[in-house]
Write a protein that binds this DNA or RNA. Structure first.
Length: 487
RNA sequence: GGCUCGUUGGUCAAGCGGUUAAGACGCCGCCCUCUCACGGCGGAAACAGCGGUUCGAUUCCGCUACGGGCUACCA
């Protein structure tokens, strides 16, 4: 019985905001490790000097912090497998050392071909103008002396993986099973670039092995290059890790999530009024489902229930509608104080009058899906829109229209003038007496009042509750204005 | 183009040879109700197609169609 702990890693490139697809990879990597009480590691893959974005590393840290995906090891938490940043690892000479080992084994070779020659290898393939380059192993035939001479002359070089032209390579994925590719299909990929940096592909294999990663979890886009990685493991004589390739997340058009569609990054979603926990919960279910029908999970519950064998193989569409619903569920379940704290800025956007903001927050808590829904819902507390349509007074079910509304408003105005207790309950009681006297439905009275007080067809509070919030003076003012408008 | 992966309602999905093919979001209807929402109840809505294998295919195999991914000195 092996007692080796599971070790997974999240290995992002610091190239900008954190995409929800990346976040889900991080989440699954975290869950797979934590479910077995393993180690979740963070490694920064900055081998691409061109794409490096200032501040991107901070975004990664902040996002992991905010989502609760705490890493056990990383650049800021040494666990004995450092360094955890690839550019720093490179300084140790590790990649070059392993590349040379492969050269000695005949599994890799120096290549001095320049751009022009490579360009000439390109073959036009289809009408879109797509080209395919398959390296022709030109430099493989260089003699040892020629290589030495080139090196001594300081000629720029890369190191390529030597993949034979016959046979095939098979690797095993936990989800997709065995995948076999003919070796002829595989290009001699570059391991070490001219600038001395390793390519992502090579650094990944070397790092995953030397950092003792047991489960390599990554996006489906790497599925087809995995045979090449497998050859590397085999060439080194290393035991290959457990591979788990994750299905893609797409937009509603089944295309890769784009920057412009609003749900591209975690940061954007938070800005749009979503709760971190809800986003995590939602993306956990995008490509994975539990044995029961549960949908609301805390992170701890996910750790407990997550079984990577239940990850699905087909791509999933990111459904903003369902995320909104789930976010609404989280908001409803929130304790009031933290809810209020988060809602306050949105309330202040439209309310400057000295009103009971807590009360306003309460009215809205079970009705919003994101915090950004708040302003539009409560702006009438500040002021009635003066151009609202009097057609709103006509309501079939309430049996009201402009004329009957005018009567109700005129009738209730003196009652409300006399009323001193402007609490919701007291107001309701007082108006109920009028309802009873008139022998009408409650709505027949409340509808016109609510409309007069809000100028809106939909409000988060009933007539009497609105009165409680805005107070007597404002209530009377609004009703008088409505009477005038209807007269 | 080549290679490779995928395909259950609009979306997320359960199912792992025999089921009235779950559940959720959304949509529609009803109830509750001082509007909306919440909550409750109910409804419409799916196995891409064609061939096998089998007593029996949504489930296994093949082909086709459609979709995705890779095909960089990017990750």
């Amino acid at each position: 019985m092996s007692t080796t702990k599971i070790r997974t890693r999240y290995a992002p490139s610091p190239t900008g905001k954190m995409h929800v697809g990346n976040l889900r990879s991080a989440l699954y990597e975290f869950l797979i490790a934590k479910h077995e009480d393993g180690v979740f590691m963070l490694r920064i893959e900055d081998t691409d000097q061109e794409r490096f974005v200032e501040g991107a590393t901070e975004i990664i840290y902040r996002t992991l912090e905010l989502t609760g995906l705490k890493h056990d090891e990383g650049p800021d938490k040494d666990g004995g497998y450092g360094p955890y940043v690839q550019s720093e690892r490179m300084k140790t000479g590790i990649y070059m050392k392993y590349a040379k080992e492969l050269i000695e084994k005949g599994e890799a070779y120096y290549c001095f071909c320049d751009k022009e020659r490579l360009e000439s290898l390109k073959t036009q393939v289809d009408e879109d103008g797509k080209t395919v380059t398959m390296y022709d192993k030109h430099c493989l035939s260089l003699s040892k002396e020629e290589v030495e001479a080139n090196l001594a002359a300081g000629k720029p070089f890369v190191i390529r993986q030597n993949i034979p032209n016959e046979g095939s390579t098979t690797f095993h994925d936990e989800l997709y099973g065995d995948i076999t590719v003919d070796n002829v299909e595989m290009d001699d990929m570059i391991l070490i670039k001219t600038d001395g940096y390793p390519t992502y592909n090579f650094a990944n294999v070397v790092d995953d092995h030397t950092m003792n990663i047991t489960h390599v979890v990554r996006g489906n886009e790497y599925l087809s290059s995995s045979p090449k990685y497998q050859r590397l493991y085999d060439a080194f004589g290393w035991e290959s890790p457990v591979y788990v390739h994750l299905p893609l997340i797409t937009d509603e058009n089944h295309k890769k999530l784009s920057k412009r569609s609003g749900h591209s990054s975690f940061e954007d979603l938070i800005e749009q009024g979503f709760i971190a926990e809800a986003v995590v919960n939602y993306i956990a279910l995008l490509g994975w489902s539990p044995e029961d029908n549960r949908e609301i999970f805390t992170l701890d519950e996910l750790i407990r229930d997550f079984d990577y064998h239940r990850i699905s193989k087909s791509p999933a569409v990111f459904d903003m509608g369902k995320l909104r619903w789930m976010n609404g569920e989280y908001i409803k379940a929130m304790d009031f104080e933290p809810f209020y704290e988060r809602a306050l800025p949105y309330i202040r956007e439209v309310i400057t009058a000295p009103l009971d903001l807590k009360h306003i927050a309460e009215t809205v808590k079970s009705r919003i899906e994101t915090f950004a829904d708040i302003p539009e819902m409560i702006d009438f507390f500040q002021a009635v829109p003066d151009d609202y349509d009097t057609e709103m007074y006509t309501h079939k079910k309430m049996k009201t229209d402009a004329a009957t509304s005018l009567k109700v408003l005129t009738d209730t105005l003196p009652i409300l003038e006399e009323q001193s207790d402007y609490s919701n309950d007291a107001l309701y009681q007082t108006l109920s007496a009028y309802v009873e006297r008139e022998g009408v439905k409650t709505g027949y009275v409340m509808w016109p009042l609510r409309t007069a007080l809000s100028g809106k067809a939909v409000t988060p509070a009933g007539a009497t509750e609105i009165m409680e919030v805005i107070g007597k003076e404002e209530t009377l003012k609004r009703i008088r204005a409505a009477i005038e408008k209807l007269s």
